[in-house]
Amino acid sequence: MEVRTIKVFTTVDNINLHTQVVDMSMTYGQQFGPTYLDGADVTKIKPHNSHEGKTFYVLPNDDTLRVEAFEYYHTTDPSFLGRYMSALNHTKKWKYPQVNGLTSIKWADNNCYLATALLTLQQIELKFNPPALQDAYYRARAGEAANFCALILAYCNKTVGELGDVRETMSYLFQHANLDSCKRVLNVVCKTCGQQQTTLKGVEAVMYMGTLSYEQFKKGVQIPCTCGKQATKYLVQQESPFVMMSAPPAQYELKHGTFTCASEYTGNYQCGHYKHITSKETLYCIDGALLTKSSEYKGPITDVFYKENSYTTTIK
């Protein structure tokens, strides 16, 4: 009895394709271990004539594949690729409408935090270190965002349907971005203890939790000093293409032309909904596939993004 075979390709990165001759009487799992086709788990399936010449994702289970996976995804987590594939199996079914010149995501599976993050990423200057993220990001900007969303979920250790947080998501993504040249110098002034300067680099240099107003941050924000008295913390120097200011959701007025974009969060910790506000020729609110415009805006804002380049204080 002759062994019926077909020729397929296996890959971990969709760049390096490895030619395989597979036995049609055995499952993919018996031949390769966990195997995925377009995100779908085909591990328990036997090869079919229609699979001839198709590319299958496999887990990096030998040295060659491990090197290829690390170079593309910059992670050695053995569960990463499987999590990416199972997320992709959902995100490829989502709709990605162009809204006001940006790629958004039609609401499904509690994905409003991903839509808000995706919209924000198209408006701030950011370059990702893992080629996987950078490639998928370019495709997302062009309207094909399924891979990018699935990668975000995998890097953030999230599953489809789980509630997510924009600030946490951005923080994970910033860790995989090139923020080497970003720098922030802060000064804390206390009447009792004097003053202390701190220099922050990388992710810490672009994120701040405690106030939404970048102007206020430049002037000074009140913080408790270690001595128990009130101290003032203010920005001395900022070198970065953008800054992200966050605070627990509270009524906040966004003035046209003073910011790049913002995240609105309605609801409580267990259950809520994100919308995205962007400042173009007027203010726009993007909620999944829905767009509304207004000249002014007041609502429960939790993150505001500002364009920056270089700032030095005039406070002496």
Rank of each mutant, 00 (worst) to 15 (best):
Y113C: 03
Y252T: 11
L37R: 11
F305W: 14
L126P: 07
Q222P: 14
K229D: 14
Y57N: 07
V42C: 10
N61R: 10
H273N: 06
Y96T: 02
K280N: 10
E239C: 11
V8Q: 02
Q195S: 14
H48T: 10
N147V: 07
L290I: 11
E52V: 10
Q270E: 10
Q30D: 13
K158N: 05
D13H: 00
Y274T: 05
Q31A: 13
P249F: 02
N14I: 06
I152G: 03
D41F: 02
Q238G: 04
Y113I: 02
Y138N: 15
L200P: 02
L133T: 01
T313W: 09
K298P: 06
D165A: 11
T35L: 06
N110H: 07
A87D: 00
P241W: 02
L102N: 00
Y96H: 02
T232H: 06
G202T: 02
A69I: 14
N61M: 14
T258E: 10
A145D: 01
V3K: 13
Y113W: 12
A40W: 11
T266L: 08
V203G: 08
S294G: 09
V21L: 13
Y265H: 08
S246E: 10
P60F: 07
K293C: 12
P249S: 09
V206R: 04
H90F: 14
W94A: 00
K219R: 11
A40M: 13
T192L: 08
S79N: 15
F174D: 07
V243L: 08
G101I: 00
F259W: 02
S295A: 12
L114I: 08
C182V: 09
H176Y: 12
E296A: 14
V160P: 10
Q237T: 11
P78T: 10
I223N: 06
F217T: 05
L283S: 05
T19K: 14
A289C: 15
Q222L: 14
S294C: 12
S25F: 09
G202P: 03
Y265P: 08
D287H: 01
V22K: 03
Y84S: 03
S25W: 11
Q251Y: 08
K127N: 12
S104I: 02
K229H: 11
N178D: 13
K233H: 10
G82D: 06
L153M: 03
M170W: 01
A205I: 01
Y73S: 00
W94C: 00
A289K: 05
T10G: 05
F56T: 00
E215A: 09
C227I: 03
L186D: 06
V22E: 00
N16K: 09
I45Q: 12
L283K: 05
K46Y: 14
L102R: 01
N89D: 10
M244T: 06
V221Y: 06
M85C: 06
A154I: 00
A69D: 06
Q270N: 12
H256I: 15
E125R: 06
D23Y: 10
S86C: 15
M245F: 07
T91L: 03
G161C: 03
C285T: 07
K229L: 11
C225M: 02
F56K: 01
V8E: 00
S246P: 05
I45N: 04
Y274C: 10
I277L: 05
I277W: 14
V99H: 14
N14Y: 08
L290R: 09
K307V: 11
K183Q: 08
Y306P: 04
D63E: 11
C227Q: 02
S181Y: 09
H273A: 06
E168I: 05
I45G: 14
A108W: 06
P130H: 01
H176V: 03
R4I: 05
G267Y: 11
H276I: 01
E144V: 04
F242R: 05
P130C: 14
T116N: 15
L283Y: 01
F259D: 06
Q251N: 10
K158W: 02
C149H: 01
G267S: 10
Q98R: 13
L254F: 05
Q237F: 13
Y265T: 06
T278K: 08
K280Q: 13
V166W: 03
I6W: 05
A150M: 00
C182K: 02
G299D: 07
T76Y: 09
F242H: 05
F259G: 06
T282L: 12
L151A: 03
Q122F: 02
S181D: 10
D38F: 10
V166E: 00
K201G: 07
A262E: 03
L126A: 05
I15S: 12
K106F: 05
Y36T: 01
K293M: 09
Y234F: 10
P60D: 03
K95I: 15
T91G: 00
L163Q: 14
L88Q: 03
R66S: 10
A115H: 02
W94K: 00
G101A: 02
G33V: 01
A150W: 00
Y297R: 07
P241D: 13
K44T: 13
P241Q: 10
K46S: 14
K7E: 08
F242K: 06
E2K: 11
N157W: 03
C227M: 04
Q98G: 04
G228N: 05
Q134L: 04
N100P: 00
H273I: 00
K127I: 11
T120I: 13
M207N: 07
Q123F: 03
G220P: 09
E2A: 13
R4Y: 12
A115C: 08
I286T: 02
Y265N: 05
S104L: 04
H51D: 12
T169W: 02
R141H: 06
T43I: 01
S263C: 11
L126T: 07
Y72K: 14
W94H: 00
K44C: 15
H18Y: 06
M170T: 00
Y269V: 14
T120M: 15
Y28W: 08
E253A: 13
Y265S: 08
S294E: 14
L88D: 00
P60I: 07
E281C: 02
L163T: 15
V188G: 01
A142C: 15
K92N: 09
G220E: 03
N268M: 08
A87R: 02
V160N: 01
Q216N: 10
A145K: 00
Y265E: 05
H276S: 05
M24V: 14
L102F: 08
T232S: 08
C227V: 02
L81E: 04
T292E: 08
Q20I: 06
V203E: 04
K93A: 09
T116C: 12
V304Y: 03
K54V: 10
T43W: 03
Y172D: 14
R184V: 12
P34C: 02
L153D: 00
Y96K: 01
K106S: 13
